[in-house]
Design a binder for these strands. Structure first.
Lengths: 344, 344
DNA sequence: TTGTAGGCGTTATCAT
DNA sequence: ATGATAACGCCTACAA
């Protein structure tokens, strides 16, 4: 009863057929009779037979498994994106291995190695903040594993890329701030070697240029990674003789840092200071004042990313996408933190 | 150069040794000379050789992989626990496959099947809210896969269990509410077939009994799963002629629902209504008033859970744990939402 | 429709 | 210290 694993041979013996027939029956191969197929399936569940994926993978050279590497799974954007990826993989009967890089380049490399060992068919990756080189990505390709980047992508790597209309998004967020009467809009950005953050900055700069207003050079600060850093910068800027009257940031956590500093100093938001975040984290509608943000449609983004593998790569419908770039439209969510004209 | 996968045979051929020797060298087998071992390693990286885990697993019968099944990866408790699990697995050179059940019993079963296919050595699971039967858990054991339950466990299943001191935690939360002068403390609970929620309710009942106060039977409501349901119940209770003056809940999201209802009706928190949550979600210190909650030490809990596999099961140090239960102590975090005496 | 045989890449056993 | 060989469980030509 217990002891060794049940194999197709066990099922075959019980039924008096060959192992290969059992294999075919279980896989619904056309060259099997309805009747026997049913019998085999029944016996298999009866014996509690379970496929050994490792054996199947070894034989077939494909694992029907997809790997995902993200900086953190507990940020709304990533967990939602993963939910989307999961859904599509599930529909296509593929498994998913999720790895976190914890924003570390070294861990990201290790994760990729693991996924290569696991023989995944495809790796979906959103790069860590530290990542500046791309040899590890080329290593993926060298192992004939498909590669798709999303959100935090690296240019100059030959792969599909899925991301938001980041430039447009931060352009309209900045524009909205100007429209609300804010004039001295500061910008807290991310690492510039990641294209997402470059694009978000470009959007801001575009709106700034268009507005005709000018701001001091130190109102633009890159490489802010968390709430604490954002708070430090905000505190410094707000202490200056001519402080900003609004902050546009590339993450809600940064915005939260700004908000906390403002509140601790009695600066009224949104009356004296406008704040605009990015990512539409779960906490944004809950806090007071509620935080304006950008909804990245992260679940759709995840679905699109996984979809590329199944639709464009597996089914070989490459021609439909010439530039190998998919852009997911964001949605501007205007809440209290940037709504100055609300009272007027 | 490209085309086929690099195997130990390729490395062996280049070096003029046998494949089995390469295998041994790569694994640091004692019956290999230092010198050749180095040579093999160098050549292997040079040729970009990567182990095929599937082949190794098939041969060894073990995958050095652990599976985790949780309801959702984007709840603080679970993502932190996973971070802990990940850390321990990493230290022990094991891979991790993460699956979400999305609180669905059917998906949970499917996830377990997948993990069995993947030949994982051990499954760490926190059950979905729907799960009432445990045949799928016994199926895991039938496949000679180790099983460890955490947080949301099912009794009567023969496995290690890791969970918080839930009863003590909600006991002290309730006691704190009484100490602050609240008298009519309502309780919003979870599905009673999951032991966690049973224990949390017991703690509340214990404190209530001890307090000597009595409350109407309808102040105790089980099976609340989300913010919306909590809000509905809170609205109903607060409309009654003799409403509760405090709510103790089994999740921060429930508490948030209560808080929003209170605020929309102009009920002052904490002056007129005390609120106490559970889980110490990221948003609890951010909202106004900040929400009192229970820190579950979820990362430690994850580490302990994975630790059991490596310490107690793999190394066979079972005797150290007689009851096969590990309890992780929580910490009471008292914030504004339950601090009525602050003004007095 | 059914069976036979061989091999996927690795490692354990046995031999040298 | 090193090599030959078989086996892990499955799938797929090929044969019948």
């Amino acid at each position: 009863m217990s002891g060794k694993r049940v194999t197709i041979y066990d099922v075959a013996r019980e039924l008096g057929v060959s192992a290969s027939y059992v294999s075919r029956a279980l896989n619904g191969h056309p060259a099997t009779s309805q009747k026997v197929r049913e019998k085999v399936r029944k016996k298999a569940t009866e014996l509690n037979y379970k496929l050994n994926s490792h054996a199947a993978n070894l034989r077939q050279g494909s694992s029907r498994t997809i790997g995902v590497v993200v900086p953190h799974i507990n940020q709304t954007f990533f967990s939602e994106a993963i939910a989307g990826i999961e859904e599509v993989c599930f529909e296509n009967n593929h498994s998913l291995i999720i790895c976190q890089s914890h924003e570390s380049f070294a861990i990201e490399c290790k994760a990729i190695d693991t996924l290569i060992h696991q023989n995944v068919d495809c790796i979906l990756i959103s790069l860590s903040a530290e990542t500046q080189s791309y040899t590890h990505l080329q290593n993926i390709l060298a192992h004939h594993i498909e590669l798709i980047q999303f959100d935090r992508c690296m240019d100059h790597v030959d792969s599909y890329k899925v991301f938001n209309d980041d430039k447009e998004a931060s352009y309209s967020a900045a524009k909205m701030l100007f429209d609300q009467g804010y004039r001295r809009v500061a910008f807290l950005g991310g690492p510039q070697h990641l294209t997402v953050f470059k694009r978000r900055k470009e959007g801001y700069l575009m709106a700034l240029r268009e507005s005709g207003f000018s701001i001091p050079y130190d109102f633009i600060v890159d490489d802010i990674l968390d709430k604490e850093q954002a708070a430090t910068i905000a505190a410094a800027l707000l202490s200056a003789p001519h402080p900003p009257d609004a902050f546009l940031t590339v993450s809600d956590h940064q915005s939260l840092g700004v908000l906390e500093v403002a509140q601790s100093r009695g600066v009224q938001v949104p009356e004296q200071l406008g704040i605009f975040g990015f990512a539409n984290e779960a906490f944004t509608p809950i806090i007071k004042p509620s935080l304006s943000s950008i909804d990245q449609k992260s679940k759709d983004l995840g679905k699109a990313t996984a979809g590329i593998y199944f639709e464009n790569i597996l089914k070989g419908q490459e021609p439909t996408l010439t530039k190998r770039e998919v852009i997911i439209k964001t949605e501007l969510i205007c809440r209290q933190s940037s709504r100055r004209t609300i009272a007027s």
